[in-house]
Amino acid sequence: MLIQTEVGRAEVVAKQLAELPGVRSAEYVTGPYDVVARVGADTPDELHRGVVTAVQRAAGITRTLTCPIAGAQQP
C-alpha cells in the first residue's frame, strides 16, 4: 500500500501500522507517498475487510493506494 500522511506524521504512522495484524512491513519514505506498507492476508476478502480497512482507519493517514502484487508467491 502506498500511503500519504498528514505533514510530519510519516514516521509515527509507519511505526503504528507495523503493529497491525496483516501488515508485514511499513517504512516511511520520501517522494509523493510518505509510507510504503506491505500487507497480506489469506483471502482477498480478508485483505480488504480486515487489513486494508484497519490501515485506512489509522490516525494521521490522508490517502491510500492499494497495489496488489500479481503472480507473486507470498512468504
Rank of each mutant, 00 (worst) to 15 (best):
M1N: 00
L2E: 08
L2R: 14
I3S: 06
Q4F: 01
T5P: 05
T5D: 07
T5Y: 12
E6Y: 06
V7G: 08
V7F: 07
G8L: 11
G8M: 10
G8Y: 07
G8K: 11
R9M: 14
R9E: 12
R9H: 13
R9Q: 14
R9S: 11
R9I: 00
A10W: 06
A10F: 07
V12W: 09
V12L: 14
V12Y: 07
V13A: 09
V13D: 07
V13R: 08
A14G: 10
K15S: 14
Q16Y: 00
Q16A: 15
Q16C: 02
A18L: 12
A18N: 11
A18T: 06
E19I: 03
E19D: 11
E19M: 13
E19R: 15
P21D: 10
P21M: 05
G22M: 04
G22D: 05
V23T: 03
V23A: 04
V23D: 02
R24A: 12
A26H: 03
A26L: 08
A26E: 03
E27V: 07
E27C: 00
Y28L: 00
Y28N: 15
V29A: 09
T30Q: 11
T30I: 08
P32R: 08
Y33A: 10
Y33I: 02
Y33D: 10
D34V: 02
D34A: 08
V35W: 07
V35C: 05
V36A: 08
A37D: 05
R38H: 12
R38Q: 11
R38M: 12
R38A: 09
V39W: 01
G40H: 01
A41Q: 04
A41T: 03
D42Y: 02
D42H: 02
D42L: 04
D42N: 08
T43A: 01
T43R: 01
T43M: 01
D45T: 01
D45C: 00
E46S: 11
E46C: 00
E46D: 13
H48N: 05
H48C: 01
H48D: 04
R49K: 10
R49G: 00
R49N: 10
G50Q: 06
G50L: 05
G50C: 04
V51M: 02
V51A: 02
V52S: 02
V52T: 03
T53S: 13
T53W: 04
A54C: 02
A54R: 12
V55A: 04
R57F: 05
R57D: 12
A58V: 05
A58K: 04
A58Y: 01
A59W: 03
A59I: 00
A59M: 01
A59F: 03
G60E: 07
G60L: 11
G60C: 10
I61W: 13
I61V: 14
T62F: 09
T62I: 13
T62Q: 12
R63H: 15
T64Q: 06
T64W: 11
T64R: 12
T64G: 04
L65G: 06
L65N: 13
T66D: 08
T66S: 14
C67M: 14
I69P: 00
A70H: 13
A70P: 00
A70V: 15
A72I: 14
A72P: 07
A72W: 15
A72F: 15
Q74G: 13
Q74M: 15
Q74W: 15
P75S: 07
